[in-house]
Design a protein around this nucleic acid. Structure first.
Lengths: 225, 225
DNA sequence: ACAAAAGTGTTGAGAGTACACCCATGC
DNA sequence: GCATGGGTGTACTCTCAACACTTTTGT
């Protein structure tokens, strides 16, 4: 059976771009200008070129929206229901990107559709099946932050322990104990002090950075002994 | 931009079907009869029909290979590198299925390619990028068995605690303590006794079944407090 | 001196881990 | 009666979770 003999679905990548700003977890969405879903908001994405891998397509879409490189990008899930795009059969491979808040976007001088950051707690009406995709991504982010070190991808290069804790609290929607948090984070060996401090209101805070060499993947608690 | 204006990749689903037989974790592979990869072995799969969801396509492929229904099936990952299929641009959505050992397969009277169970410890030469896909699936299975109850999907409806423990040991390549295993498994509330026993060599063993209503998802140990 | 945020230890409970012997049956 | 696998309890360690006050700076 040849590759030619079947009608082919279209394949797109959608990139869910999260950032953390002002104690708020936000996602970048673009406004659709044409029917269907005119005026609704969608996860940025586009067709996969025939000579481009999925990862490369996702990275290209990401770089069309943000100005920074070396961004964390991970494949999430592939959504392929029949009725998800009324224009035809479109399968989309969803990726998740985590950008630090200073990543300039929506990109200046961009000719693409209007792009805006939305708080995950107050989303606008969404196009396609994106109302299903975003909660999936949030769940994955929450889950992953619990046993790996992806949380740092949302922070600037140096940060205080309080900022780090607030990042975790915002993503998990849960308050954490300061002493336990600091002890565990430090003993995990994933961050290191920079030797500098940051002054502000109150006592100046030590600054830390993420240790690139740290592979912090906590083993899951097992169901059995 | 219309859906028509781009050349489209082909989309397939591949279903990695695991079973557990004789203390051996096995995977079902089909022998390829035509170039490329003639004589090599591949994960069973096929094209996604234009009027069929991804999940439906995966289930159809699975049912072409096995005789049982209600089988555990989960989407794993989508592989979309350019050179993974020399015949052209083919993106494949990989699924993982777990079948009990009595699931008759390869299907009797099947007109499809020769299909054989292979031990995960001794795989034949593989087609496409399947040498990358199978270890990914195994890792996912190992990971998932540690914090959820998918392990039961590989066992018959009733089983002894020793059989269950051996299943875990085979998948994890790790010996487990009998007393700890039994205590934890019973206290987790995911299995219940049937009241019957099975006789064999030595003392007869109590038989258990999985409790459908048990939602045993163990929370991951967290990196932070 | 006071406001504001940073930083610091201890204790009790529960889970995990290691470990060795008796029990019920078939032959 | 013996070989074979089934079944059971305890002690130690370690991690988790709860909890409140002192320190350092800017104004």
């Amino acid at each position: 059976m040849s590759l030619e003999s079947y009608p082919r679905p279209s394949v797109t990548v959608d990139v869910i771009i999260f950032r953390l700003l002002d104690e708020d977890l936000q996602v970048l969405l673009v406004k659709r200008k044409f029917p269907p879903f005119e005026g609704k908001w969608a996860i940025p994405g586009g067709f996969v070129n025939i000579d481009e891998s999925l990862d490369a397509a996702a990275r290209r879409e990401l770089e069309e929206e943000t100005d920074v490189r070396d961004i964390y990008l991970e494949q999430l899930y592939t959504f392929g229901d029949l009725e998800r795009d009324p224009r035809g059969r479109v399968i989309t491979v969803a990726y998740m990107a985590l950008v630090p808040a200073y990543a300039l976007s929506p990109r200046a001088g961009d000719d693409a559709a209007e792009a805006t950051w939305w708080s995950m707690g107050a989303l606008p009406p969404l196009a396609f099946d994106h109302a299903r995709v975003l909660p999936y991504a949030l769940q994955r982010l929450r889950y992953k932050i619990e046993y790996s070190a992806v949380g740092f991808e949302l922070l600037p290069e140096v940060f205080t322990l309080s900022e780090l804790q607030r990042a975790y609290e915002v993503i998990l929607c849960e308050e954490l104990d300061k002493r336990n948090f600091r002890r565990k984070m430090l003993s995990a060996g994933v961050i290191e002090g920079t030797g500098h401090v940051r002054s502000g209101d109150g006592r100046p805070a030590q600054l830390y950075r993420f240790r690139d060499d740290a592979v912090a993947e906590v083993r899951a608690r097992r169901l059995f002994p």
